[in-house]
Amino acid sequence: MAPPGSRRWAYVRVMAGTILGGVLGFYVMHRVETSYKARMEERLRRYEAHMLAKAKEETEQRLQDEAPQHKDQAQLLPDS
Protein backbone atom coordinates (compact mmCIF):
# COMPACT_ATOMS: atom_id res chain seq x y z
CA MET A 1 0.00 0.00 0.00
CA ALA A 2 1.26 3.49 -0.88
CA PRO A 3 1.97 6.02 1.84
CA PRO A 4 -0.87 8.55 2.47
CA GLY A 5 1.18 11.53 1.14
CA SER A 6 1.77 9.68 -2.13
CA ARG A 7 -1.93 8.98 -2.57
CA ARG A 8 -2.79 12.62 -1.92
CA TRP A 9 -0.21 13.71 -4.52
CA ALA A 10 -1.78 11.31 -7.04
CA TYR A 11 -5.24 12.86 -6.44
CA VAL A 12 -3.79 16.34 -6.91
CA ARG A 13 -2.14 15.32 -10.20
CA VAL A 14 -5.35 13.71 -11.50
CA MET A 15 -7.48 16.74 -10.59
CA ALA A 16 -4.94 19.22 -11.99
CA GLY A 17 -4.65 17.21 -15.20
CA THR A 18 -8.43 17.06 -15.55
CA ILE A 19 -8.82 20.80 -15.03
CA LEU A 20 -5.92 21.74 -17.32
CA GLY A 21 -7.13 19.29 -19.96
CA GLY A 22 -10.61 20.82 -19.85
CA VAL A 23 -9.22 24.34 -20.16
CA LEU A 24 -6.99 23.32 -23.07
CA GLY A 25 -9.86 21.52 -24.79
CA PHE A 26 -12.14 24.52 -24.35
CA TYR A 27 -9.48 26.87 -25.77
CA VAL A 28 -8.83 24.65 -28.79
CA MET A 29 -12.53 24.28 -29.56
CA HIS A 30 -13.03 28.04 -29.17
CA ARG A 31 -10.23 28.70 -31.69
CA VAL A 32 -11.65 26.14 -34.13
CA GLU A 33 -15.12 27.67 -33.85
CA THR A 34 -13.96 31.27 -34.37
CA SER A 35 -11.83 30.33 -37.37
CA TYR A 36 -14.75 28.36 -38.86
CA LYS A 37 -17.10 31.32 -38.39
CA ALA A 38 -14.59 33.68 -40.03
CA ARG A 39 -14.23 31.34 -43.03
CA MET A 40 -18.01 30.99 -43.38
CA GLU A 41 -18.52 34.78 -43.20
CA GLU A 42 -15.94 35.29 -45.96
CA ARG A 43 -17.55 32.54 -48.03
CA LEU A 44 -20.97 34.16 -47.55
CA ARG A 45 -19.60 37.56 -48.64
CA ARG A 46 -18.14 36.05 -51.81
CA TYR A 47 -21.41 34.21 -52.53
CA GLU A 48 -23.50 37.36 -52.06
CA ALA A 49 -21.16 39.35 -54.34
CA HIS A 50 -21.40 36.60 -56.96
CA MET A 51 -25.20 36.55 -56.77
CA LEU A 52 -25.40 40.36 -57.06
CA ALA A 53 -23.11 40.30 -60.10
CA LYS A 54 -25.19 37.51 -61.64
CA ALA A 55 -28.45 39.42 -61.04
CA LYS A 56 -26.95 42.57 -62.55
CA GLU A 57 -25.75 40.61 -65.57
CA GLU A 58 -29.18 39.01 -66.04
CA THR A 59 -30.87 42.41 -65.79
CA GLU A 60 -28.52 43.89 -68.37
CA GLN A 61 -29.10 40.92 -70.66
CA ARG A 62 -32.88 41.25 -70.29
CA LEU A 63 -32.67 44.96 -71.12
CA GLN A 64 -30.56 44.21 -74.19
CA ASP A 65 -33.04 41.55 -75.29
CA GLU A 66 -35.99 43.92 -74.84
CA ALA A 67 -34.36 46.91 -76.56
CA PRO A 68 -34.63 45.55 -80.15
CA GLN A 69 -38.30 44.69 -79.57
CA HIS A 70 -39.09 48.30 -78.73
CA LYS A 71 -37.27 49.47 -81.83
CA ASP A 72 -39.16 46.96 -83.97
CA GLN A 73 -42.48 48.09 -82.55
CA ALA A 74 -41.60 51.73 -83.22
CA GLN A 75 -40.83 50.88 -86.84
CA LEU A 76 -44.17 49.08 -87.25
CA LEU A 77 -46.23 52.09 -86.17
CA PRO A 78 -47.59 54.14 -89.07
CA ASP A 79 -46.33 57.67 -89.50
CA SER A 80 -48.89 60.32 -88.64
Rank of each mutant, 00 (worst) to 15 (best):
E41L: 11
E42D: 14
E41A: 15
A16F: 07
M29Q: 03
P4L: 12
H50L: 04
E66G: 08
E57P: 00
T59Y: 14
L63Y: 06
R39A: 07
D79M: 12
T18H: 02
A38Y: 00
T34H: 00
G5A: 14
R13C: 06
K37R: 15
Q75L: 09
L24D: 03
R39I: 00
A10V: 08
D65Q: 15
A49I: 06
A74C: 08
A74V: 04
Y11T: 10
R43M: 06
D65G: 07
R46L: 10
A55P: 06
V23W: 15
S6K: 08
A16L: 13
Q69F: 08
Q73I: 09
P4N: 13
L76R: 04
Y36V: 09
D72L: 12
S35Y: 00
L20V: 15
H70Q: 11
A49V: 06
H30N: 13
V23R: 11
L52N: 11
A67T: 06
Y27E: 01
P78T: 03
Q73C: 00
K71I: 14
H70M: 08
D65P: 01
R62W: 09
A67Y: 09
W9M: 02
D72C: 05
A2D: 13
M1T: 07
H50F: 07
V12F: 05
A10R: 15
T59L: 12
L52M: 13
Q69T: 13
K37I: 13
Q73N: 14
R31I: 02
R39W: 05
P4I: 14
E66T: 10
V12I: 03
A53K: 14
L24R: 01
K56C: 05
G17S: 01
A67S: 08
F26H: 03
A16V: 05
S80D: 07
S6M: 11
L63K: 12
V28G: 05
L44G: 00
M51P: 03
R46S: 11
A16W: 04
H70R: 13
L44K: 07
S80V: 04
A10I: 00
L76G: 13
A10L: 07
E66P: 01
Q69R: 12
I19Q: 01
H70L: 14
L52G: 01
T34L: 01
V23T: 12
H30T: 14
A74M: 05
R31C: 00
K71Q: 15
M15D: 04
S6R: 10
